[in-house]
Amino acid sequence: MTARHTPEDLAAANGRTLADVIAPDLDVLFCGINPGLLSALTGHHFARPGNRFWPALHRSGFTPRQLAPAEQEQLIGLGLGITNVVARATAGAAELRPEEYRTGGEVLRAKVAEFRPRWLAVVGIGAYRVAFDAPKAVMGRQEQTVGATGLWVLPNPSGLNAHYTPDSLAEAFAELRVAVRGPDPTAA
């Protein structure tokens, strides 16, 4: 059952933060740009119904079925986690300032040093470019690392990112899954 939230509920979530889904030694720590208002309100990452993170995660082979945002804690058992470049919730990433991305990048590097995921996958090329001072970065595997942690850039799964279809998003996520876990033995 889907809860209905009022515009006032969502407005009250502006500026809140969202707890990471994180543990030591994950295979992949996915990193969103920042929490949306619905995510901050519900406490679940990628909570907006039009967000394609959860379908892309499943369709790429990272999860055995499509998880709902409320099931995010199950990711830990699959070697996956979620954090954000910028902690504070906004109605849209356009509300963030470049210095927030840069500060968020420093916080993210410290998190990676502490939790040591094999890969950090930032979902959003613009956020990655500013947070990691890599203005010419392209999608996919990056040459830069954070210690022993590899860096990967994925497309932003927001429904607003119409440049990527559900199929092309799943393909981009699958390239990372292959790098992490090897080819899918069940694929034809």
Rank of each mutant, 00 (worst) to 15 (best):
A110D: 12
G159T: 08
R102P: 08
Q72M: 06
Q144P: 13
A162I: 13
A137N: 06
G126I: 07
R65P: 12
V112Q: 04
Q66M: 09
V112H: 03
L151M: 07
K111A: 08
G147H: 04
R59C: 07
A93E: 07
L80H: 07
Q142K: 06
G77H: 02
E114K: 11
S60I: 10
A91K: 05
T149W: 00
G77L: 03
Q74H: 04
L120I: 13
R129K: 11
G104P: 14
L96E: 08
V130M: 06
K111E: 11
R97Q: 13
I76W: 00
A68P: 14
G92D: 13
G81M: 03
R97C: 04
Q72R: 09
R118G: 12
G105C: 01
T83I: 00
G124Q: 12
E143L: 05
E71P: 15
A89Y: 01
E99V: 03
H58Y: 10
W152M: 11
F132T: 09
V112F: 00
V112M: 02
L78N: 07
G81F: 00
Y164I: 11
I76R: 09
A148C: 07
G147S: 04
G140A: 04
V112K: 03
P98A: 03
F132H: 12
E100M: 11
E143P: 14
E100W: 02
T103M: 03
A127K: 09
H163G: 14
N156I: 08
R102G: 06
M139E: 06
D133H: 12
A121H: 12
A148P: 15
V153N: 03
L78Q: 11
Y128N: 12
A113W: 01
Q66F: 01
I125S: 14
N156V: 08
E106R: 14
G159A: 10
A134Y: 05
K136W: 04
K136H: 13
G150M: 03
V130Q: 11
E106D: 11
S60P: 15
W119Q: 12
E143Y: 01
Y101H: 09
A131Q: 00
G126P: 15
E143Q: 10
E71S: 07
F62G: 10
